[in-house]
Design a protein around this nucleic acid. Sequence first.
DNA 1: AGAGTAAAGTTGGAATCACAACTGATGGCC
DNA 2: GGCCATCAGTTGTGATTCCAACTTTACTCT
Lengths: 240, 240
Amino acid sequence: MANSDPVYLRVVEDLRRQITEGLLQPGAPIPSRHQITRKYGVGETAARHALRVLAQEGLIIGRVGSGHRVRQRPDLLPLHRAQAHFSTDMHAVGRRPTCDVKTDSAEARPDIAVRLRIAAQSPVTRTRIVYRSDGKPVQLAVSYEPIVYNDGTDDVTQVAHRLGGNGLKLTEVTEHVYARVPQPVESDVLDLPAGVHVLHVERTHWAGDKPVETSDVIIPCDQFRLVYTLPAPYGDQINR
Amino acid sequence: MANSDPVYLRVVEDLRRQITEGLLQPGAPIPSRHQITRKYGVGETAARHALRVLAQEGLIIGRVGSGHRVRQRPDLLPLHRAQAHFSTDMHAVGRRPTCDVKTDSAEARPDIAVRLRIAAQSPVTRTRIVYRSDGKPVQLAVSYEPIVYNDGTDDVTQVAHRLGGNGLKLTEVTEHVYARVPQPVESDVLDLPAGVHVLHVERTHWAGDKPVETSDVIIPCDQFRLVYTLPAPYGDQINR
DNA sequence: AGAGTAAAGTTGGAATCACAACTGATGGCC
DNA sequence: GGCCATCAGTTGTGATTCCAACTTTACTCT
């Protein structure tokens, strides 16, 4: 079928097809390097490279000593779902994820009120979460919600669950994502080296057409990367 | 400074630092494989791998026979800016980018009216752009704007320029990005194989607090990938 | 001088071998 | 039975070597 494509791409495409078509279900084991060399008649380099590419696409996950498996999460994720993997992913790479949660209530924030579609002077609950990996801060999330929803607990990470008690059902999450230069307070909290940009995710949780919570997530670009890649060799090439 | 990190990471981090700090300006040549082996005292594998990683991050670009250079575009881009590189990027990998533009005006679209914050029955101009690479459709953009702005030209890609003539200045672009299963019409236009998901970018151009144009960009996940990666070996690992 | 050619250098792809760290399972020992 | 050590298998990393395709430069020949 294929022709003069690189050998490793043949392997990538075949495995990717099997995964996206559901032949290989999440959790299913992927052939090991040696098995690939035999099954596809390719060298070890090609097998290794194929596995690397699939892993980098998020389709499979590898563990030393255990092998590769189809990733539990689907092939592509909205950012907010990918972020839900923060804790497990950090664990996975052998780092201890922790977070500070600090809530300071009752403040009027006109800019946030717009996003929550409430009166400009209504007080909102602000919760700041600093995610850490082995103590090192890697992510900052500042979340706001109308004060009426807050039930006094600190567990802002369980928005959906808590809102259930208020008779609201989360139906959607929308996001604005962009990269920018960090603000001083962000550089401070995240201990950013000079020159590092941040990814800013403006996220709103909706219950029907009502925004019930909105948050700003700040991710340093040297920690987590949102990469827009071309399907070209090495992901990218030069123009002239 | 570093300790037991993989050798290639030392090279990656040093070059990345030089790029993000501006020591290596866009267009500046990156040491070749052989130069890296000598300069950093590493093997060829490590040098090659380091270049591969940097290229995959979009920081540098390689050309066979010519070498690597610091990429013209900055290290991280909002999607809409990355997309502006579509044409040059396609050229770069030796493919001929073309696009069909089709505008059919005067239709009432209540759903779009909401996004444009205009009356539900106001007619909007719909423009459909099919981007092609060597004839193969790779991207679909459906763009809407209030009919008053349209000046009859087909060049919807130059939103900012055209709107200037109406006394409006684009100040912001916001996006909602998510992945989903393609709709039949999309599978049809883009000639999608079964099982391929699409990235859906809902984009709105703003002039101040007025939305002046909104568009849906559909990108097949097997053509372009938005990848959320961890700074871990192979980008990802398993939990448990 | 100008044009065509040859050579050197570079990247992308690939094969082969090696090794440390880790996992899972097996089997033996208490 | 329960616990521990061993061992084969796997991944991540790395070195080395080779080759095709390409670019750039320098050189030679007309």
